Simulated scan of single mutants.
Amino acid sequence: MNMDQMIEIVSSKLKLIRIEHGYTQDKMASTLGISKKTLLQIEKQRTHANWTTVAAVAALFRNSEILKTALGGDPVEIAEILAHQGIDRPKEQTMGGRVWWKDVKQENGFKLQQNLISKHYRILDADNHRWYSSFDVDEAYERLDELVNS
Rank of each mutant, 00 (worst) to 15 (best):
E20Q: 13
P90M: 10
F135D: 05
K44F: 08
N128Y: 11
D26H: 03
Q106K: 15
K119C: 12
W101M: 12
E20V: 11
Q114V: 15
S30V: 09
R98D: 13
S11I: 03
N63F: 06
E92W: 05
E8N: 13
V148S: 10
E142R: 14
L32R: 01
G97P: 07
L116P: 05
K105I: 08
A29V: 13
A55V: 14
T52W: 07
H21A: 05
T47V: 13
T53G: 07
L71F: 03
K102R: 12
L60Y: 02
S30E: 11
G109H: 06
T31A: 12
E139T: 10
A56T: 14
I34R: 00
V54A: 04
K15Q: 10
K91H: 04
A56G: 11
W100H: 06
Q85E: 11
D125T: 09
R46K: 14
Q5G: 06
H48F: 08
G22C: 02
E65G: 10
K13G: 02
S118F: 02
Q113V: 10
D103F: 02
H120M: 14
K111Y: 02
A140W: 10
W101E: 08
Q41Y: 04
K105H: 12
Q25R: 11
A29F: 14
W101V: 00
E139L: 14
T24P: 01
D138W: 01
K36V: 15
A140N: 07
F61I: 00
L16M: 06
D127F: 13
I81R: 07
Y23L: 15
A58G: 14
A79K: 06
H120A: 11
I87M: 09
K37W: 14
K91F: 00
L14M: 06
M1C: 08
A49Q: 11
N149K: 15
V54F: 02
F61A: 00
I78W: 03
R18P: 08
V76P: 08
V99H: 11
Y132G: 07
N63R: 12
V148H: 04
S30M: 09
E8D: 11
A83R: 12
F61T: 01
E92Q: 15
A58H: 07
